[in-house]
Design a protein around this nucleic acid. Structure first.
Length: 420
RNA sequence: GUGACCGUAGCUCAGCCAGGUUAGAGCGCCAGGUUGUGGCCCUGGAGGUCGGGGGUUCAAGUCCCCUCGGUCACCCCA
């Protein structure tokens, strides 16, 4: 043994193997289709960035302050594995100056140094989409509808869409003073952890799940009460749009979200089917100040991200989007030295059929077992007799139909005939 | 980072609480029954440093400590 202990995947990461991985590729394909129909192009950004790219996510947020995987490279550059997708996309927007509206979708891993638990990993994967350069509230609606429809496409139901508006910066500053005064007056009854948030980001106190805090702030003023006319109109247009699309939603005045760059619309989709504490399978919002915060020209933006692991967990809980067995058209059983299997499988693949075969000249019985296990529709048996006659024995593995001899040269056509 | 529970074959687990001959089962895998035929059945086989290290003991999978890993919860988030 080369090493006394076999290596394991690092804590909080996991291997996604077949057949489970088949769901991932199907999920990605479905998502790509949904986004394609709405004019979004695929974008891939690096998995690591200059750490400063993620600063606007929020110095006071856990994602930035304690969960970042950061490191110095050999050139002393301070880099970080991306903890979320939006900042990178906006950085790319600033760098390349594409025409607006710039509509892109992405899929890939994010990294957060957290303690793993149900639906939470150190490397997790998200699907997401962003539209940069559009202030129109209709784009907020478009994105929410797309995400909602995507979830419906894969079979999820009973989801809950919560929306809120956290207003523009002016509105929020005014509200912060108001809210701080309210919270200060109740400081003593708040949980110590929450007390610390009052100065940094008072709205996040509203989001607290701690019982003490919840009780103390039951009648806290909401931002919706003091919102500016512009914000109010934006939010109203969003609500009307969702209603027109037939997407059910609820207004959740306490919904804040953990990232600092949001303005106006924020939303979250939860799956009540998930028993675990992490029921949010997707979320997003508008981030009108982010491009500028990253050193670019001011540009409005909206987007969402959804966690693949959690989506799949929700699918399991609802019993939808199940794993599919591998599909093969045929499996070649070669009773000789394997040359026939080699040549026939290569030929059929070139003809567009999915074909596998056995190796190592195993016994007929073993090869038939392998054929059965492969999930192939037909076994193609080639022994001495077939070889001499230029034929192939074709056996339907999914029914008890009598096996038959077909000419080797017409094999692809004969198979296709029986597969259709 | 804090807390709780759990690590025995590829997988799911029994054995631990009352330490004591070669550590078991089901499924999976391999081979044979069927000298060229899968799925059902029968028979046999391979596969385990009982997560790792230390301690107690004549003796540790079993008791104690540490450590690593897993699971779940808090915080926070997808």
């Amino acid at each position: 043994m080369a090493s006394p202990e076999p290596f394991k995947a690092p804590i909080g990461t996991r291997d996604i193997l077949p057949p489970e991985s088949g769901r991932w590729t199907r999920l990605l394909a479905e998502f790509a289709q949904v986004m394609h129909l709405a004019g979004y192009g695929f974008i891939q950004t690096p998995m690591f960035e200059d750490i400063a790219v993620f600063r606007p996510v929020g110095e006071g947020t856990d994602v930035v302050s304690k969960e970042m995987y950061d490191f110095f490279d050999k050139g002393e550059r301070h880099l970080a594995l991306r903890p979320e997708g939006t900042a990178s996309v906006v950085r790319a927007f600033n760098q390349h100056h594409p025409n607006v509206p710039w509509k892109v979708w992405y899929a890939g891993p994010n990294f957060r140094y957290e303690k793993p638990q149900a639906g939470r990993f150190r490397q997790h994967h998200q699907l997401g989409a962003e539209c940069i350069g559009v202030s129109d509230p209709d784009i907020d609606v478009e994105l929410m509808v797309l995400l909602w429809d995507f979830f419906c496409t894969i079979g999820l139901s009973g989801l809950r869409l919560s929306i809120n508006s956290i207003g523009d910066l002016e509105t929020r500053h005014g509200y912060y003073e108001h809210l701080r005064a309210y919270l200060d007056a109740r400081r003593d009854s708040l949980d110590p952890e929450d007390r610390r948030k009052i100065d940094q980001h008072p709205m996040r106190v509203l989001d607290s799940k701690r019982p003490d805090t919840r009780e103390a702030i039951a009648d806290a003023p909401t931002l919706l009460d003091v919102m500016s006319g512009v914000s109010r109109a934006h939010f109203e247009r969003v609500r009307n749009g969702l209603a027109a699309a037939g997407v059910p939603f609820e207004i959740e005045p306490r919904l804040v979200r953990g990232l600092d760059y949001y303005t106006h619309t924020v939303f979250e989709i939860q799956s009540p089917a998930l028993e675990s504490a992490q029921s949010a399978i997707g979320g997003g919002g508008r981030y009108d100040g982010l491009a500028e915060a990253l050193g670019g020209k001011a540009a409005p933006g909206t987007g969402f991200a959804a966690g693949i692991e959690r989506i799949l967990l929700a699918c399991d809980a609802e019993g939808v989007f199940a794993e599919k067995g591998v599909h093969l058209d045929a499996f070649v059983v070669d009773l000789g030295d394997g040359s026939a299997a080699r040549d026939v499988s290569a030929g059929l693949r070139r003809a567009g059929l999915s074909v596998d075969r056995a190796f190592d000249a195993r016994s007929p019985k073993a090869q038939m077992k392998a054929a059965n296990r492969s999930g192939a529709r037909f076994a193609l048996i080639i022994g001495e007799d077939e070889l001499a006659a230029g034929m192939v024995t074709l056996k339907d593995l999914r029914s008890d139909v009598q096996q038959e001899l077909v000419p080797r040269e017409n094999l692809a056509d004969e198979l296709r005939k029986r597969l259709s």
